[in-house]
């Protein structure tokens, strides 16, 4: 599904990723944990093609093909989805119509007919329930005036509707209360199947109680320094990051 091969990358001239390697197979849920400033969020920008990220060397393969030359929208259409840590506000653009626009862009890419607003409304009813929102949510301007929790729910709603093959959750748990965390996690769990992969980026272990990872990576100083199963996350929870960081420095 996704292969990140020895990537060195920088943002604003500062090298953040220093030889990152990561392989995610179809159906797998990977978690990347790490202290603040370790560069783990750069990972999500790297895969989704954020213009700030400058790749010095290495390659990213999606289903065996390099996506380095693809614009962010092409990567998205090929199945990469990123749930933003800080979703941007866009005044005047209706949440629902944005969602339909994205949905139709994908349908068009797949050679399918676009859906009209009526059909679309029907189609997303169930997904709305998943994230615990009602239809009024769709009439509001995109992310504008949303609370932190609403923004994150909205991201997951988009994920549920767009059905990507690779989903990256960038600190989705930040700013969520415990109930919202459960709702969001349940929605994500509904999405997990043998064809879809997930990359969950988080600082804390608590999200991983709800979305259970197959593989856990510890990220530090632009590299994965340790890989294990879900027990590794619990160990981090208990001991903090320091014991892991020692050998590197």
């Amino acid at each position: 599904m996704l292969e990140i091969k020895n990537v060195f990358a920088s943002i604003n001239g500062v090298q953040i990723l220093k030889g990152t390697n990561l392989t995610i197979k179809p159906g797998e849920v990977h978690a990347v944990m790490g202290p603040n400033g370790s560069g783990k969020s750069t990972l999500s920008k790297l895969v989704s093609g954020h213009p700030d990220v400058e790749i010095e060397s290495g390659d990213i393969l999606l289903n065996g093909e390099s996506i380095l030359d693809d614009d962010p929208d092409i990567r998205a259409l090929k199945g990469v989805f990123m749930a933003f840590q800080y979703p941007v506000e866009v005044p005047g653009v209706q949440n629902g119509s944005f969602l339909r626009m994205a949905y139709n862009a994908k349908r068009k890419f797949q050679g399918l007919d676009e859906v009209d607003p009526m059909d679309f409304e029907e189609l997303i009813q169930e997904k709305l329930k998943w994230v615990g929102m009602n239809e009024k949510f769709l009439d509001r301007p995109l992310n504008q005036g949303f609370s932190g929790g609403e923004k994150k729910r909205n991201e997951i709603l988009q994920l549920a509707v767009l059905e990507p093959t690779l989903s990256i959750l960038d600190e989705t748990d930040s700013g969520l209360d415990i109930d919202a965390l459960r709702t969001v996690s349940e929605a994500v769990n509904k999405m997990i199947n043998k064809d879809r992969s997930f990359l969950v980026i988080t600082h804390y272990q608590r999200l991983l109680n709800h979305i259970v990872p197959d593989v856990v990576h510890i990220f530090s100083e632009g590299q994965i320094i340790k890989t294990g199963d879900k027990s590794l996350a619990l160990e981090v929870e208990e001991k903090g990051y320091d014991w892991l960081l020692q050998p590197v420095s």
């Binding site: 614009d71 998205a76 990469v80 005044p91 653009v93 767009l162």
Partner: peptide, 29 residues
């Protein structure tokens, strides 16, 4: 903002469409 455009692109919407949509949103009132 670049972040707005990137957000649209990340959802599979081209930069041109994103711009038009954002400008139309600006004029909505």
């Amino acid at each position: 903002t670049d972040e707005q455009l990137f957000y649209f692109q990340q959802r599979g919407i081209s930069a041109e469409d994103a711009l038009t949509t954002i400008v139309n949103g600006f004029c909505k009132d």
